[in-house]
Write a protein that binds this DNA or RNA. Sequence first.
DNA 1: CGCATAACCTTATGCGCATAACGACTGCGG
DNA 2: CCGCAGTCGTTATGCGCATAAGGTTATGCG
Lengths: 146, 146
Amino acid sequence: MDLEYAGALNQAIRLLSLRHRARAAQLLAPLGLHAGQEALLLELDRTGPRIQAQLSEALGCEPPSVTLMTRKLEASGHIKRTPDPTDKRATVVALTSSGKALAEQIRQLWVTLAEETVRGLPADMLEQLPGILHTMSTNVGDKPPA
Amino acid sequence: MDLEYAGALNQAIRLLSLRHRARAAQLLAPLGLHAGQEALLLELDRTGPRIQAQLSEALGCEPPSVTLMTRKLEASGHIKRTPDPTDKRATVVALTSSGKALAEQIRQLWVTLAEETVRGLPADMLEQLPGILHTMSTNVGDKPPA
DNA sequence: CGCATAACCTTATGCGCATAACGACTGCGG
DNA sequence: CCGCAGTCGTTATGCGCATAAGGTTATGCG
């Protein structure tokens, strides 16, 4: 692999990360949300109440991050945290009604963001793109099987 | 645009961002670097000494971030910050010899990271990929011309 | 020439993410 | 039944990033 290609690729991924996240933050700000929180709300809306460990897995971030995010979203009134009756270690996280409403708005914003992001790309690329991105994620992200 | 497609796309970008950055951090840790610092060193190595405002522009992050990163890299001995003789507001940032050596190592690691990232993708996609990513960055990132 | 505006940097503060270290609980093997 | 490894969550700490506000120097315009 070429030094120049590798640099261009990594730099492109880094820039896309920064800008996509920044744009998401702009769109989410009117809803009173910070970038990253939307994923948690969408996941809960998609699958129903879940344990924090499951959220951590689904969101691709570590348990301490989930602890803080859930605390803040609870303070904002969008989720509710209750002790799991069957496992005294765990706490289940569920959407409140305001959280459900917010999830719906986020989905609309995400259409806007996605359209904006892929503007000008050929149609056949649009088909492949999610798969490509997913492949790269798993290539670079799967836990060491130890 | 489809709600489902938009969700998948944004989620894929978010996950790729997290994992690619996390993997970069793993690779950079043995060099004593944190993710994000490598871009600054590579930029300096590519273009020579620069003003912080130029770095801010090149890296795609805000001036306060550059201030902190440069302070820490200076504390690590990899760069040197000196007042600009022709503009008393500005400070020019230059690589030290240890910084130059580090930049070379980073370039090697980036080949590793890039190869890992695109593993399994078809060759014609590899050609288009940097352009695609760049297009998405600029789509979502250009400053409002205000 | 003088003054308002703009550019460069810094400080303060806050969020999302990470790792490390810890206490609480579960559940399995002896 | 008990002890111990593994799981769930939390706290503490640190980094990269952001925005907001302020100080200093440069510059362009009347």
